[in-house]
Design a protein around this nucleic acid. Structure first.
Lengths: 204, 204, 204, 204
DNA sequence: AATGAATGAGCATTCATTCAT
DNA sequence: TATGAATGAATGCTCATTCAT
């Protein structure tokens, strides 16, 4: 594919530049923080001129939004696809946790942007909350409700609260991971989270 | 006038001005976000001149740090004191959750600063992590270990991971609360978190 | 299609595109002002690509110059032609005034560019002064001198000053007209200007 | 108090800095044109820091407005005062012309700003027209009407048009003067303008 | 001739911080 | 202690111009 393109044209494919800017922004935001990152830094990292950034994005803020939107969109659609093939709600929950941590664990810079940079503004958080996040939380919640209907999860629980707890736990795993000076695998945490969520910490 | 003031003790006590600036900063940060808040805004809100802020704080950033430091310090010492009077690890955990949510639930502006503004910079998060947060997490962790020793909590669990999950769950409750358009009581969530954490979601 | 166009002469004549750009520029400058107008605006208005503008003009400034040059050139040659057919210097002056106001009155956008946009830079004004304007003023001046020789105009007057006053009066009529919120005919002002210029305001 | 301060302090009097910025702006605008002038240029010329400009003016545009406002205001009040002491409408008109040209002739840089820089934007011209300019024109107009009532000026003339012609003539004198490479006295032109305006160019 | 994506120099404005009073 | 006028570094964004196609 790559070679095919090279053979017929040196012109980058449409979207390549937008993609490059997005990747550059993730890297730059991850290292300097959103507010301390200059658009010029992103441009340099992407190998384009400052002005070129504005051919693809309306503003610096829109770049941040685009990072979020694109990632969440992919995560949700990918998540749904995988969940379709699983029937046991417990295994579904485990798959959600794994995908969540796999995705962030595979791209530390993206993880930093998600766990830190995207959290620093109420304005963004509110949109964040309103948009993709609500849908993501809904995915977890309906899986839990499914489990309640199926009789594998306790029916006396508020599914929404349980979903928040589940998300909060995963989120904290991710945040701890990127802030930790130690380097460890993030994905294995999924099982531990699941174990506690499903069974609790109390000795029977 | 001046002497009259001193005589009747209307003169602000030492530290009152520092306190006023801190309260003003919390309010201003909560409403505009840290990066969009101007030192001049804080000064006006506190009823002092711009320059006066710098008699009490070295920089704008130090104000943010001070907010964090003071709050965490109080929270931890207060937490320890309360926990001393409880012996059951399960009740201890519940008390931690209640205190956590009470504190944030009682001061929405402080909560916004804690849940949103303090999260927006890796640099700060790292210090955050290093300093008080580690101690706070340690408090939770040792309570869990205590429970493991006492045989009320499962010994096959990693106490540190369990502590993170517990914190993550509480943190998510708080964040959701401040971002939610609906107005509800935050403290009651403590019991639900505890129930799930202790007993899990699985039907026995 | 291409050939069809060539065959039926729908192909734009040489210069048509240049003309289109010039018209577009007049419109755009008139509405947004020279400095606030973007070359891209002109291109869009003219229905050509941004780059195409530079096939016909060296720079944005040259477009402004060209508007001026072309208009003044036409005005002067047309003026000369008409004046040749008139012998009475008083009627010549009247014709100049009429042509001046007719031209501007017939094209409000061009008038805006002439009365406002072209005035905003000393640099341009100097060239303006040096080039066509001097010639235009010379036309008025020699008509006045003609009248002095013929004995119909006072010989004690400085013809150059009189010419400036005449031009200044017409110019002010035009400027007032484009700035006025009221809509009225510009051409009739010519007679009033002439009356005062020729006879003065003093009661005899 | 004032003298006490001067004696004991090098601190510039209040308003001095604003004044310095205004003078600097006139100079800078006159030399580079409004759009080509940088705020930094003005600040340097005024001997203050860039930011200081914004303590006295909201924007670069407001500086231009202030130059206009202040000058017109002074011109009008000064004009009125002088006219009160003259009864003959013809001498009043002459005084207006003299003051007009004296003011601009005494400050070439201010004249450049007035005759060129202030003309370059419809937006400004409209406000210009609406505000002080209308009042100035009204001053001329009422003087002419006065003359008509007194029987010294022709009653068949439209006083408003005559006022515009008068202003246009003076305006052109000023513009020509600043654009001319030759150096000559501007004030003497007042008499020539008056002569033609009052008596016309026609031989009796 | 025509296109329009890419360039990058240029600039008004903001605001944390200082310091003379 | 307190003030607030002054500072000046810092930067997101625009847009005239170029040039590969």
């Amino acid at each position: 594919m790559r070679s095919a393109r090279s053979m017929t044209s040196l012109r980058p494919a449409v979207g390549d530049k937008r993609e490059a800017i997005l990747r550059a922004a993730i890297r730059v935001f991850a290292h300097n923080g959103y507010f301390n990152s200059k658009v010029a830094d992103i441009a340099r990292e992407a190998g384009v001129a400052d002005g070129t950034v504005y051919l693809y994005f309306k503003s610096k803020e829109e770049i941040l939004h685009s990072i979020f939107d694109r990632t969440v969109e992919v995560a949700i659609s990918e998540g749904r696809k995988q969940l379709e093939q699983i029937s046991d709600p417990r295994r579904k929950l485990r798959r959600i946790a794994q995908l969540h941590l796999e995705r962030l664990g595979a791209d530390r810079e993206l993880a930093v942007v998600f766990q830190v940079e995207l959290r620093g503004s109420t304005k963004f958080m509110e949109e964040f909350s309103a948009a993709g996040f609500a849908e993501y939380l809904g995915l977890i919640r309906s899986t839990i409700e499914e489990g309640q209907s199926a009789g594998v999860f306790r029916r006396d629980l508020n599914a929404k609260v349980a979903a928040k707890i589940f998300f909060g736990a995963l989120d904290e795993m991710a945040t701890n991971w990127i802030l930790s000076k130690r380097r460890y695998k993030l994905v294995p945490m999924a099982d531990q989270v699941l174990d506690i969520l499903l069974n609790g910490v109390s000795e029977k």
